[in-house]
Simulated assay, not measured.
Amino acid sequence: MAEPRHLALPSFARRPSVREEVANVLRGAIVSGEMRPGELYSAAGLAERFGISATPVREAMLDLGQQGLVEVVRNKGYRVTVLSEADLDQITQIRQLLEPTATAEAVPHVTDEELVALRGLAAAIVDAAAEGDLVSYINADREFHLRLLTAAGNPRLVRIVADLRAQTRLYGLSALVASGRLVDSAQEHVEMCDLIAAGDAKKLKKLMTTHLGHTRREWAGRPPE
């Protein structure tokens, strides 16, 4: 079955852990709006785009289905799950309750080695924003935040946030790329690293609260209130 439109997705030929990598890319495509609710996607069509067999794509879709991101349409393929504005508001509200506090608590536990890794991810986020590569942007952003939260020492919270982030929809990112403003938002990750290095948990919590506020405003394509 032919795909509804071209998707800016990379090839995974001759790479290890294909199932996980495909799931990560498809998750990023769903969150960023590259893959839209209501459109059907076939494992065979996506596999052809990736340059791999259909099996790891089907397995990745099973993983995404367990997270509530896609639903199986029998004998047709997979459809991205539809979320209402109320759903997205509730997801953001829960994230606002969890992430700023947990991030602040993580500050004293971030090692020098971890900070180097976080700075590398922050740079990757900025680069992806500058290049307009939304899937890479989403995936680097996800890894940055989950890695930072992991330092707080609460794996249950990390799993909850990972699920919430996967269900977030950021359809306004393309407009931000076109206007050049996504790079400004991406730079907030660099600022977070600087605050971690300075040991300033209070300012980091405030910045994280502001950062998450973008999720339901400009990143989501919602007009200013």
Rank of each mutant, 00 (worst) to 15 (best):
L176N: 05
L148S: 11
S11G: 10
E114Q: 05
L88T: 07
K206S: 12
K76W: 15
V72C: 08
E131N: 07
E113T: 14
K205I: 08
G153I: 10
S42A: 11
L157W: 10
R217A: 05
L195P: 08
E3Q: 10
A140F: 11
E191P: 02
E105W: 00
L98Q: 10
P16N: 11
E105R: 10
G77K: 11
A44G: 09
D163M: 09
C193K: 00
Y78H: 15
A140V: 06
V25S: 00
R169N: 05
G221L: 13
V22I: 05
L64E: 08
T55R: 01
F12W: 08
V190Y: 01
A186T: 01
L148M: 12
L173D: 06
E48C: 06
N154C: 12
G33D: 11
R181D: 14
L157F: 10
I196M: 10
V135Q: 01
A166P: 00
A2N: 14
Q67N: 05
I91L: 02
P108R: 13
A43T: 10
E34N: 06
V110T: 14
P56C: 02
L9E: 13
P10A: 09
R165W: 11
E3D: 09
E3N: 07
A8H: 14
G51T: 00
Q67I: 01
I30A: 00
P56G: 00
R119N: 15
G172L: 04
G68Q: 01
D112M: 14
Q187D: 13
P56Q: 01
A23D: 03
R79C: 13
S179I: 00
T210R: 07
L97G: 03
K206D: 12
Q187M: 11
V190F: 03
E3P: 05
L182F: 00
T168W: 07
L195S: 11
Q66S: 04
E188D: 13
G213S: 06
G153E: 06
S174K: 09
L40W: 01
R119S: 15
R19K: 04
D87P: 03
A197G: 06
N139F: 05
L69K: 02
E191N: 00
T103I: 04
A197F: 13
R58V: 05
E113Q: 15
A54C: 08
E99S: 04
V82M: 15
F50L: 03
D112Q: 14
G221E: 09
L88H: 06
R27D: 04
R142L: 06
E114M: 04
Q67C: 02
T210D: 12
I52C: 00
F144C: 08
R74P: 09
R142Y: 13
G65F: 01
